[in-house]
Design a protein around this nucleic acid. Structure first.
Lengths: 336, 336
DNA sequence: GAGTTGGATTGAAAGGTTTCAATCACGTGG
DNA sequence: CCACGTGATTGAAACCTTTCAATCCAACTC
């Protein structure tokens, strides 16, 4: 059974406790003969080192954690992959937790990670300004905010310049000759949704186009279903007000919109041009490949992991807010 | 700092160690006055219960784990969601680990979970017959295999009848009048890829169609890129051999194929009908919504969680192999 | 053969929590 | 005024590993 301890191993192998521990932690210190004996005993007894006891004594855990906002959004799993590659490089393992946009679950995960003395916690929080995060840090667990920014600078964070992203998207549409477009996003409690709109407005203003021709369509969440619904709302507009292009706050919404457009006979991009955001793998694979604003997802993850490690190990760590630059990837959904 | 222990709390609150522990574990046993005192001290000191010590003493951990094969495939994150809902119901938390199709990483995750004395481990293994799994169980950690089946019955497992799924897909295509179709899948080391083909052949044989008109296109993995490539191979076939429909081993492949077909001017379903497998959210949202074989993903996860819990807590647990029934969801990619 | 060196091994202490039998304080009933 | 019961509190032991100073022993040097 899994019930055997170093003590049992020591007894079976006829050595002392300390020697067994040495086999586990400093195999070079122990003679090949005894090492073999001990390893044999371990196998026979099915010994499994008790990580709790190890960690209690050693004081240190060998894991990082990432609390994701929505595990079913490929964007976040890509970020996770970046984190994992950085963690692997320094021989830490990564556990993933999914808050699924639920404040209660987020808190529960954070509490448990704290109690486990996790080396570092990365989180894409529901509310980046929540006091819960401050408390976690105050009690001693390094926390880095991923893909969100706070209003203060008391955290390390890694994000992408969403204002710039919004500007890139809309500049592209203006370049293609569009003079009436929709911005589809929501809820506006999300910083990204606000920032991307802000960028869109900047570009719009810079081109001296009338503000009322940048139409805001507000939706309840950044999912496929909301994109479909937004498509119906667009179709319901009088022709004189109907936009010739839409900029969606993320790719899921854009895919929903695309589906609705095509199924209702609107040609993309001739009848409606579409720009998404995130450039998830399904954007390129859509039947009308989607123009999208790419975020460096893996780099985001890697950078966040590096920051949390620095915070965990470097005594004169200073918080920094890293901001990556997005990039427009033009595809068929805007280009004929 | 995070460095304070129950002892510190006890000292600050002017009570004994045992009382602090009671506040933590049996708050009803302690008078409201002292409880308040203790809780105040905890807040002041930023006390965080040390889960390692707790677990060491109590012997029990409060978490389940799911080692997924590929976190970037929405199918597995949906399964994870099902697991999470079951775990939540019994107040356990779920941690996710991603093997990313890498044998070494899978083993590393399993080893760590064992050492942590995780209550139960769910895993979609790279090789379900691997001896590594037997060893983990032999050492005392309950393991349930998800979405895979073993050749023996020494494990609980939860899977979906892939032979039936294959049959459903191909029966549907035969019903639609197709008499030359392709099966696109690989590598054949994957049980699902083999089983779905077996089901396809059953249906084909039952309809008394010539075996050589069920064309096998072998690919290297079940990803979007491979679907694209398969599309090119189909296009390269002489017209007399070119199939009028394709059954893809999963939706990622089907999406790739769909994209290739449309971008090369083949109409779907008129020029090429397509059936996918898994019915991930992006299947319905594709611009030509994809006919697909739906697996009850969330139920799969829930059932697996139930089994592992039974194995963990019920002394006369018996292994069982649960098999769910798939269901065909017909959409525009096969229906005009 | 005495003394030294170096590697291998040992044993006890420590780490933070939980548990449980023992103790305490206090009010009640006789 | 005493015995008793009840609920609250206490303190020591136990969980398993790691660490480190101390010990052992065999091989070597002079």
């Amino acid at each position: 059974m899994g019930a055997s301890s170093v003590k049992d191993v020591a007894r079976t192998a006829g050595v002392s406790l300390g020697t067994v521990s040495n086999v586990l932690n400093r195999p070079d210190r122990v003679s090949p003969a005894t090492r073999a004996k001990v390893e044999k005993a371990m196998r026979e007894l099915g010994f499994v080192r008790n990580e709790s006891a190890r960690q209690l004594r050693a004081g240190t855990s060998r894991t990082l954690a990432y609390v994701m906002l929505d595990a079913s959004n490929p964007f976040f799993t890509d970020v996770a992959q970046g984190i994992e590659s950085a963690a692997e490089a320094v021989d830490l393992s990564l556990v993933l937790c999914n808050s699924g946009n639920d404040q209660r679950r987020e808190s529960a995960h954070l509490a448990l990670l704290e109690q486990r003395r996790t080396q570092g916690v990365l989180v894409t929080p529901i509310d980046p300004d929540s006091a819960v995060l401050d408390e976690v840090v105050a009690r001693g667990t390094p926390v880095v905010i991923v893909d969100r920014t706070r209003t203060d600078t008391r955290f390390c964070s890694v994000a992408v310049d969403d204002v710039l992203g919004g500007r890139l998207a809309v500049e592209h549409l203006i370049d293609r000759g569009h003079t009436r477009i929709a911005y589809i996003g929501g809820p506006y409690t999300l910083g990204q949704v606000r920032d991307r709109l802000a960028g869109a407005r900047e570009a719009w203003a810079a081109a001296e186009l009338p503000a009322e021709d940048l139409i805001e369509i507000t939706i309840d969440g950044l999912y496929v279903a909301e994109g479909l619904e937004a498509g119906q709302r667009l179709a319901g507009l009088p022709a004189s007000r109907r936009p010739t292009a839409a900029f969606c706050a993320n790719d899921l919404v854009a895919l929903g919109l695309l589906q609705q457009a095509i199924s209702s006979g609107t040609r993309v991009p001739e009848g409606l041009a579409i720009v998404g955001y995130d450039d998830i793998v399904f954007a390129a694979a859509a039947a009308v490949p989607l123009t999208s604003v790419r975020q460096p997802r893996q780099e985001l993850g890697r950078a966040a992991a590096d920051l949390v490690l620095d915070e965990a190990t470097n005594p004169d760590h200073e918080h920094s807010q890293v901001q990556f630059t997005p990039e427009l990837v033009a595809r068929a959904s805007t280009i004929t």
